[in-house]
Design a protein around this nucleic acid. Structure first.
Lengths: 342, 342
DNA sequence: ATTAGCACTCCTCTTAGTTGAGTGCTAACA
DNA sequence: TGTTAGCACTCAACTAAGAGGAGTGCTAAT
């Protein structure tokens, strides 16, 4: 167990390093307001903290730098919550000024503001479209052999896909089809559509329409690879500002990772509420070993969820980011729950 | 006017520099197959070419580097067209293997393959949605006060926007509305929709439906800021490979530029066919002073156009890129014209 | 238990010297 | 007269050595 003095010193070191990105020396710490001991005392404590694994040195005679374990401890025990600036709050609120209905627009704006306020990179996941429910299903024929299938969901999201019509498919066939589809599909969630189509709708349709088989199969394959939740980025190049990313290769790897949807998805903790922090190698991705990722979720309507991630160096301003995410998460949830309806 | 020997030497220097990114010395040139003169002779010619502004030195005793004027001359006069590798052609063809109908998917794939083949960054502009024509207009109410307007275009593109319904708007109002809108709007191009709405449709609707005014205005403002053509990127971080971009600031500026839709749009030459090359400061953007941009267009259906841009260092392999773009432009145009219909 | 003092470490910055690729010029040559 | 060999000169890039300084660990005094 750490003594109070050790806690105080560890906190001072981490805070200082987060601020200045320079190894912290005993003198530097001793000059702080809240510290009352001499550099020599601090040096002794530092040596102990290093032995315990909370601090590291870059070389024998350098100042100390927090280790990952140090950050972890800092985050778990020394992160007394902090209010944020009223100017920051105002900025966040400004997202909702336009009183726009479009979810996408609000999320995009949130991503930008978050990256501005933190000076890190932000990633926002939109609502999980898979869990939307069908509100209306329609098919618009484009030519004799192609048509567009359109699904409007309860949240106003529109999903559309082109597909091939079976030969000799008449307008009245199409009409019957759409009627049946609407009868059967309204209220079904997008992720369940193909099951429903194949199990139930197919048999019904076969009685009404020739070549229903081909039709349904075209439709199924069209709705199969449904789009995942959309991803919005803010401040993609913000990491260039951080001295730890003055290395092209690191930056490149992270930017590349962010282009890969699956990798980005795996940054998040779906279905876990609260704020999560992953420090350095706690991240599964090798590319992120110099980064910390702070994630949280926000709710959209009753049962939808979006997610937020902030990516920065391990020397991230955890206190500020956590505070900002907290506000942002609440505001988004509120805004989206107020305006939605089924 | 340059002598044949000067042309030969200029070409050799540019080729060499494009390949190795190192200032080219007289000895290096003299060793080439096609060069039969001694280093001393070449040095003399180099001095002349430098005086004429085609070459530059990085310092007094360095080899020569092409100037922008040098590249310009090279591109204009020394770029004898070159066939491309059958393996490359095969790769390009592979885009069309899936026999997919979706334009978007093909373009996305093209962007990736282009960036792979060139090892530069590619940007593809999808079809200009503004010029699509309305095929079907529909409105799906979500709740008592919001609805989604959906426009399907002749090319199967779907545009949708949420908007507020006027209070006390009945289902029958809505039905009438949609009927009138379809009567009047089918065949109108997206860019003309609001004109048409305000000029013609408004007066007609006012006779049928209460609060048509509010409705139309909501609709107009919803269709106003129509999405521009979608932008697809390939190999965004490819420039990290180029030695000239080992400078973080340059890379950052370019990446930032690519996040700004308006800036990206202005890289292109709309409505000009053929292949265009902009070298270094010929680009309007200051951020691009170290880059060359090669652009071209491809056709989608009868009157639609998409565009391609390749962004690389001024020391770009112009020959190869031009050849690749030529193939790509043809193939895309062909693929999109074959499968489309009105 | 705390702290002042001091020797020691090692990074960082500066300076000087060396190397080598490449030039420009001159004079010899075909 | 055009071409080329030879040579002195330039300058970036690398290496080595030395000075300066921030910071540590240890010891002994408080």
């Amino acid at each position: 167990m750490l003594t109070i003095r050790q806690l105080q010193i560890l906190q001072a070191i981490v805070d200082d390093f987060i601020m200045f990105a320079q190894p912290v020396g005993s003198r530097q710490i001793s000059k702080k307001q809240e510290i009352t001991f001499s550099p020599a005392t601090i040096r002794n404590e530092m040596a102990d903290l290093e032995e315990l694994g909370f601090l590291e040195k870059t070389h024998t005679s350098s100042g100390r730098v927090p280790s990952e374990k140090g950050y972890r401890f800092y985050v778990d025990h020394l992160l007394n919550p902090q209010g944020i600036n009223s100017r920051d709050i105002q900025q966040i609120q400004s997202i909702f000024n336009d009183r726009l209905v479009e979810v996408e627009h609000i999320i995009r704006k949130s991503a930008n503001i978050l990256s501005e306020l933190t000076s890190y990179t932000s990633i926002l996941l939109g609502p999980d479209v898979q869990r939307h429910r069908v509100k209306r299903f329609s098919i618009v024929p484009l030519s004799s052999d192609t048509a567009v299938a359109i699904i409007v969901t309860n949240n106003g999201h529109v999903e559309n896909r082109m597909f091939s019509l079976p030969p000799n498919f008449t307008a009245s066939d199409l009409e019957k089809m759409v009627n049946v589809l609407n009868e059967r599909l309204v209220g079904v969630s997008l992720e369940d559509i193909h099951k429903k189509l194949e199990a139930e709708v197919l048999t019904v349709l076969q009685q009404h329409v020739r070549s229903a088989d081909d039709f349904i199969h075209a439709l199924v394959s069209a709705t199969m690879h449904n789009s995942e939740s959309k991803i919005f980025y803010g401040g993609k190049t913000n990491m260039f500002n951080q001295p730890e990313f003055h290395d092209l290769n690191k930056v490149r790897m992270i930017l590349d990772l962010m282009e890969t949807t699956s990798q980005v998805q795996s940054l998040f903790h779906p279905n876990e509420s609260g704020i999560h922090i992953r420090i350095g190698s706690e991240n599964k991705q090798l590319e992120m070993e110099n980064c910390s990722v702070i994630t949280t979720t926000y709710s959209i309507g009753e049962d939808q969820q979006g997610a937020i991630a902030i990516i920065g160096p391990t020397r991230m301003d955890y206190k500020r980011v956590v505070a900002l995410l907290d506000v942002m998460r609440m505001d988004l949830s509120q805004a989206f729950t107020k305006n939605r309806s089924d």
